[in-house]
């Protein structure tokens, strides 16, 4: 066409400019829309986690017999959390906890005790702290290995002096406002108060007295030798390694002794899915997840899930004669 002498050169230029402009606009629209789609994707799936670093715990005895399992990284432990008061998205909790103040903090101990007592977090941190490396198995079919720091719950129970008719221990998670005893607690952080959680707050859990007194049952004040990160249940949480993770209630503000089995959040929410005991049991499937296997965070394949999360030797005796398929 360019060699066709019958067409004036000015016309040729116009045509070319026209086509150039068309393809320029198209290329621009293509690139622009792809960038916009990418930006939307990035907004919905924000870039990876930030580092947390809480203060070091000054004095604790290191774990005596660590498991052969590799520890889960601090990064993963602090960026994959079920803490529904903030968010139901496990990746979404860490970015919301910045203004979660955990001082002053007290645990109210009441119910069937000689004398209801308030325990300040500073006093609880004075109890001999020890490191415990435990497997942590979530009911959703994933697991971690976490180096907790804390002390056996039994030590607090001994100080609290429950009455002999106390058969259960009930726990409650902080949910803004004051401690149930009226003691001062930090105001609720902005992020707390997730109205989409679909479960009632405050979150409550419970143990039978012998489970609570078991030497494996821990009140944890930290992990990896540092004070508990907010997203993991600062400043103090329960850790019951042979039960599904939701039993290990976070950010505890109240411990009550009762003579009746206390209500627990998830078993009230869906009694056919979650029981009071919720011991890790590969033979009792959950409606949505087979419990036969689990994915260890940091690994790609699946591992066989162990009865009582591998702590059967220590705890199976607590359930002698019980039908664990019925009392799941």
């Amino acid at each position: 066409m360019a060699e066709d002498t019958k067409i004036r050169s000015s016309e040729i230029t116009d045509e070319a400019t026209y086509l150039n402009r068309r393809s320029f606009i198209k290329a621009g629209a293509l690139a622009g829309s792809a960038v916009a789609t990418g930006a939307l994707y990035r907004y919905l799936n924000p870039p990876p986690p930030r580092e947390v670093s809480t203060a070091k715990i000054g004095d604790f005895s290191e774990a005596e017999s660590p498991l052969s399992d590799e520890l889960t990284s601090l990064q993963d432990i602090t960026n994959y959390n079920n803490f529904y008061e903030f968010s139901t998205d496990k990746r979404g909790v860490a970015p919301l906890v910045d203004d979660f103040e955990v001082r002053p903090w007290t645990i109210a101990v009441d119910g069937l005790v000689e004398q209801p007592t308030l325990f300040g977090i500073e006093d609880l941190l004075k109890i001999d702290q020890e490191e415990r490396i435990y497997r942590f198995r979530c009911v959703e079919g994933w697991s971690m290995v976490i180096p907790w720091v804390g002390f056996p719950l039994s030590k607090l129970i001994e100080k609290a002096k429950p009455l002999s008719k106390a058969r259960y221990v009930a726990f409650q998670t902080y949910y803004g406002g004051a401690n149930p005893s009226g003691a001062q607690l930090p105001p609720g952080p902005n992020g707390m108060g997730n109205i989409f959680a679909g479960i009632p707050f405050p979150y409550v859990e419970g143990l039978r007295m012998d489970e609570a007194m078991h030497p494996l049952t821990l009140l944890a004040t930290g992990l990896y030798g540092r004070l508990m990160p907010a997203q993991n249940g600062a400043p103090i949480r329960l850790v019951v390694p042979w039960k599904y993770g939701f039993k290990s209630i976070k950010s505890v503000v109240r411990i009550s002794f009762t003579d009746e089995e206390p209500p627990t959040t998830w078993s009230k929410q869906a009694p056919n899915e979650y029981g009071f005991y919720s011991n890790v049991n590969p033979d009792v499937p959950h409606p949505r997840w087979s419990q036969a296997t689990e994915r260890r965070i940091g690994e790609y394949g699946r591992r066989e899930t162990l009865p009582f999360n591998g702590y059967g030797e220590e705890v199976a005796g607590l359930y002698k004669g019980m039908d664990l398929k019925r009392y799941y």
Binding site: S33, A34, N79, Y80, K90
Partner: peptide
């Protein structure tokens, strides 16, 4: 192109180890 962008970004994040604790 726009339909494939999310897959490309998913693949990129996977390659960079940026999918979080439980990539699968």
């Amino acid at each position: 192109v726009n339909g494939i962008v999310p897959l490309a970004m998913l693949g990129w994040d996977w390659n960079q180890g940026n999918l979080g604790a439980n990539p699968i």
